[in-house]
Amino acid sequence: MTFVRTARPDELPALVEHPGDAERNAGTRAYLGQLLDSSCTRPEWCLVAEGEAGRLVGSVVLWTIPGHEVPLAMVLFEAPADAPEVAAALLDAAAARAKELGANELEHVVDSPAQAPQFQRGPERRGELLRQAGFRPVRDGRRFSLQVSDGTLAALPADDPRLTFRTLAELGPEPFVAVLEELLADTADARLAADVREHGPRRAAELLFEETAELKHEPAWWEIGYDADGSPAVISLPAENPSVPVIGFVGVAPAHRGKGYATSVVVRGTRVLAANGAAEIRGDCDAANVAMAKAFARAGYVNFADRLEFSRTL
């Protein structure tokens, strides 16, 4: 018989150990240690499934942005491949714990191919387990990475001479929200389009700005690029999440699409983060946003994984 409980202190940060898989065990142990140290999770948010003889056979950990008290997502979801009932119990327990803590929605992402630090092997099986537990796919994404070296800044294309950039420090938030509102009214991103349907373009733009502002950043990093006619053409919101610097959000205003500005704005955010000490920079986009995927590639990024995003209403 298997039951789900809170992990004991002596079980952290290892949780489920896989015999003969030293790379996975070390990677996930270090990852959970980092999450605990950064307050992205707490010991009481770490759940395990206990099988016969007290052996741990599964785990799931709730996650949030540092400084928040309500979990937003779950990580380190592990369950035996031949025991779907264990997976269901873990997912239900995670949802119940998140709801107790004030969450009204819980997210999880599945990356393919499997890689550190979560080593999500069997992505199709994982996706099916999530669907059976009431999670719905909300976005099919593509993940990109750029390794920054001494020559990265020099190798980047020059800033686009057609664009004049002004920062958040100069402009304040309102012009940024206005540009986001215009972008979201015609977005190829499934998650953002869903936010627009639920909240309307203006409120969706405010929420996007507020959520991105939760990430570490400097006001001088965030910029709007203006076309020669004086109209806002691009927006760049680079930042740092608890693990790695990220492009955050970039976009091109509908009236200025087709001019090559997508690459220009990715380069701009990359330059900002590289100049501020980033060793690696990551970014992502919806699979349907072909122009942005091409922009990442032209700026030197590698598509290192695909990411399916899931959400469950609590």
Rank of each mutant, 00 (worst) to 15 (best):
T164L: 01
T164R: 12
F165Y: 15
F165D: 01
F165W: 06
R166Q: 13
T167W: 02
T167R: 05
L168G: 06
L168W: 04
L168N: 06
L168C: 09
A169E: 15
L171C: 10
L171A: 11
L171E: 12
L171V: 11
L171N: 10
L171M: 14
G172T: 12
G172C: 10
E174N: 05
P175G: 10
P175M: 13
F176W: 06
F176P: 04
V177W: 03
V177E: 10
V177N: 01
A178P: 03
L180I: 00
L183E: 09
L183S: 04
L183V: 14
A185T: 09
A185V: 05
D186N: 11
D186M: 01
T187G: 06
T187I: 04
A188Q: 13
A188S: 14
D189N: 07
D189G: 04
D189T: 04
A190G: 07
A190V: 08
R191L: 12
R191Y: 14
R191A: 14
L192T: 03
L192N: 10
L192M: 09
A193K: 03
A193S: 12
A193E: 08
A194F: 01
A194H: 08
D195Y: 09
V196M: 02
V196E: 00
V196D: 00
V196Q: 03
R197M: 02
E198M: 08
H199I: 03
H199M: 13
H199T: 07
H199Y: 15
G200W: 09
G200A: 08
R202V: 02
R203M: 06
R203C: 05
R203E: 14
R203A: 12
R203P: 06
A204H: 03
A204K: 04
A205E: 04
E206H: 03
L207F: 01
L207Y: 00
L208V: 10
L208S: 11
F209M: 00
E210A: 15
E210I: 03
E211T: 11
T212H: 13
A213G: 03
A213M: 09
E214C: 10
E214Y: 08
L215S: 14
L215V: 00
L215M: 13
K216G: 11
K216A: 15
K216D: 15
K216Y: 08
H217Q: 08
E218A: 15
E218V: 12
P219C: 12
P219A: 12
W221T: 12
I224A: 01
Y226M: 02
Y226D: 03
D227C: 05
D229H: 06
G230P: 06
A233W: 04
V234K: 00
V234G: 01
V234H: 01
I235H: 01
I235N: 01
I235F: 02
P238H: 10
P238W: 09
P238M: 12
P238Y: 11
P238Q: 11
A239Q: 14
A239P: 02
A239R: 14
E240C: 15
S243L: 15
S243F: 14
V244R: 13
V244D: 09
P245Y: 09
P245D: 10
P245Q: 11
